[in-house]
Design a protein around this nucleic acid. Structure first.
Length: 292
DNA sequence: GTCCAGGATCGGA
DNA sequence: TCCGATCATGGA
């Protein structure tokens, strides 16, 4: 079976994914877009919805997904890994423009932008504000243990809004949420009551959806862009955090503002791949030095 | 002790 | 519209 850049076949009760050029799980799951995947003893393990997946390298030839049927992979995991999009094509839009950008594209090759559940992504990135990734992971772990469902594997699901709404601000502060605790209270109340629904944030232009997201508690410009990119598949969203600011400053050093990388991404068709480039730059910034 | 982390919100100019 | 202060927490 194949789906453009992701080629797979059933093998020994699981799924083998052949090739890694545009499907590198080590980068996909460790580039700051998701918080519930952990690597230990050669195995990536993650919980998405009520599914638990374990993935290991397949002798350097690709990846092996344990306990996964062909049907489940095609119906659930291919969309999750954004299998319908060509990342090679997006990379080509930006290749050859700038030496340092080329280095970043090379370093980040294999990243794919996940399509993660909307509610989980929203809560996760509200918690991400002025925070660091290890601590965000810990906060989400505690939320899942407190309000999620226990699966046979021993893992917990990410709790739905109704389950989160059963907790109060004090509970969240005890989980170390700090000043973000009241945001989660209001988010859970709003989505559990139906005052807000995921459908309110799916239709329309990216700018329109972004404006709607900005009305949610704890959601500012950067978090809105993360939700657009990591949950809603809006590849034209471009989250700017402290790391990206450093990278952009380095890339644009010595250039006029009009010659900066941001202006190159402003118009079609490059803007339609801006989110991927952003993630590549974020990944690069955290794994290599960006000297100005 | 200070600084920083995938920032948002608020009040005041 | 823009700007600075403030907001918890834990690790470096």
């Amino acid at each position: 079976m194949n789906n453009s850049e992701i080629q797979w076949h059933a093998h020994n009760g699981g799924i083998r994914i052949a090739g890694t050029r545009h499907m590198d799980l080590n980068k996909i799951l460790d580039c700051g877009q998701c918080f519930r995947w952990r690597y230990a003893d050669g195995v990536w393990k993650g919980t998405v919805g009520s599914r638990v997946l374990e993935v290991r390298s397949w002798e350097g030839k690709g990846w092996f997904l344990e306990n996964c049927t062909n049907q489940e992979f095609q119906d659930f995991w291919v969309p999750y890994f954004d299998g319908g999009r060509s990342y090679g094509q997006m990379e080509a839009l930006y290749a050859g423009m700038d030496q340092r950008l080329d280095m970043a594209l090379d370093l980040g090759r294999g990243i794919r932008i996940l399509r993660q559940p909307f509610w989980e992504t929203t809560v996760s990135f509200v918690l991400s504000a002025n925070n660091n990734i290890p601590r965000i992971q810990g906060m989400i772990d505690r939320l899942c243990q407190a309000a999620g469902s226990l699966l046979p594997s021993g893992d917990y699901t990410f709790p739905g809004a109704d389950a989160v709404a059963l907790l109060n601000e004090g509970d969240f502060r005890a989980m170390g949420f700090g000043y973000r605790a009241p945001f989660i209270v209001r988010l859970a109340e709003g989505f559990a009551s139906g005052r807000w629904t995921e459908e309110m944030f799916t239709l329309g232009t990216t700018a329109e959806v972004r404006k709607n997201l900005l009305g949610l508690p704890g959601v500012g410009p950067k978090v809105a862009d993360c939700i657009l990119l990591f949950a809603l598949g809006r590849m034209d969203a471009f989250p700017v955090d402290t790391w990206i600011k450093k990278v952009l400053a380095a890339l644009d050093s010595g250039k006029s503002p009009e010659g900066g990388i941001m202006s190159c991404m402003a118009e079609s068709p490059r803007c339609e791949a801006a989110g991927y480039v952003q993630q590549v730059l974020f990944y690069s910034a955290r794994y290599q030095k960006w000297e100005v």
